[in-house]
Design a protein around this nucleic acid. Structure first.
Lengths: 224, 224
DNA sequence: TGACATTAGTCACAGGACGTGACTAATTCG
DNA sequence: CGAATTAGTCACGTCCTGTGACTAATGTCA
């Protein structure tokens, strides 16, 4: 998507699109036109009269995966690490796409699981790492897990998504108890049979108002 | 601090410095040179060869309150809301200063409690609001409260700082129990008598390693 | 000087939340 | 039909949290 005919941009918009592939997070990269096997985070220059958010949405859509289910700015990057076009600063966005969204055709874009990401420019590597950290941190404040799932899902799928994001296994009973207390999902009438075993009921994301309880002080969560 | 002789900057660095005044948060504003009673968030253009972080630190120091105890980027702003110099985008930073730090002399800078902030340019108002939200959100992940206190403090002062940031009252016993479990402070040999009543022991911030326990799923903290 | 107000600091109990293992239910496969 | 597999629930013990009441140490004032 980079348009080389424009004047050297003062500021580029980088968009890190994440999804879930199997039991891992994956990022959408774009094949760089020059290098034969070089990949970059999708980006473009901000256009006149265009807000940064609109530019990020445009970059995300141009990857032809539809609108991202979530999009948030993660900050401005500009120290040392060079951007491909040597723009002074990059404003980066993180976006989430439901799992199962097909990889765009044409071979220009491809999903890479986080363990298999090819070498990137230093600044783009930093942007990617920040995006992943942000998603993991947002989990407690925003229904991030649901943005990575299709509209209807089984509770086991939801639990696996949380395990993926948290990086640890959860106990089934604990997870469901907490889910019930949070009033985040409601059951549908549909069931899905996944080969062998009892069929699972499908749920949808349907948050309800709840008392602003928020008990607990939990200073022990402090990390540093 | 804005230097008008430079070329129109493509990107400005805005710094929101916060402290505690009484039982409220306060922000440091700078008197605008033109308007008689207009105030702005301290800012300056990024200089060549200077990282954004360095520029933010320079702006903070130039307010002559010493180094901030904490400084973090809160994002890039540029939609609609005009910056005073009409720069296309502003990269904003939030900083914390220990309470009791004197207001810089000269009348150029002044502390405003959050309820008394004068009218600001829309974008600067947005930056300020975002900074305050960020500080409140960071509380659970970073020892923000200690950055607002002097090096030595009583546990009642620490509790009041948490109450200020959380916006709600805490029970003394609960707060101290959680504090003990978190291994964040250690007592000193000094005591302080605050007029009437039993003297309070002084503590200092001294975090210790603790097991990465982090029990609990707590989906109920989701806000939306 | 002695009672009282004021602030610091601790204790213990009740109720709720969490980790855990074991249980029942419904389906496929042989 | 029985074994294997996955979904879903229950109950118990342990730990955490909210809460009120308690002791401790100082200043104030009659």
């Amino acid at each position: 998507m980079p348009d080389r005919k424009m004047r050297r941009p003062s500021c580029t918009i980088d968009v890190v699109l994440l999804t879930a592939v199997g039991s891992q997070l994956a990022v959408l990269l774009c094949r760089a036109p020059e290098g034969r096997e070089k990949w970059v985070v999708p980006w473009d220059a901000q256009r006149p009269q265009e807000s940064m958010e609109a530019a990020a949405l445009r970059v995300a859509k141009s990857a032809s995966v539809g609108e991202p289910a979530w999009l948030e700015q993660i900050g401005a990057f500009g120290d040392g690490k060079r951007h491909p076009t040597e723009a002074e600063i990059s404003v980066a966005y993180a976006g989430l796409v439901p799992m199962g969204t097909p990889s765009p055709i044409g071979g220009v874009y491809a999903w890479f699981t986080l363990g298999d990401v090819p070498q990137l420019a230093p600044r783009q590597r930093q942007v990617l790492d920040t995006a992943v950290s942000l998603i993991r941190a947002r989990m407690d404040q925003s229904p991030v897990a649901f943005r990575l799932l299709p509209q209807m899902f089984t509770l086991t799928e939801l639990q696996q998504m949380y395990e993926l994001l948290l990086g640890k296994r959860l106990h089934k009973a604990s997870f469901r108890r907490a889910l019930q207390a949070a009033w985040l999902v409601e059951p549908t009438d549909e069931w899905r049979s996944e080969g062998r075993g009892r069929p699972a009921q499908l749920y949808r994301y349907a948050p309800r108002k709840r008392r602003p309880a928020q008990r607990g002080i939990r200073l022990d969560l402090l990390s540093s």
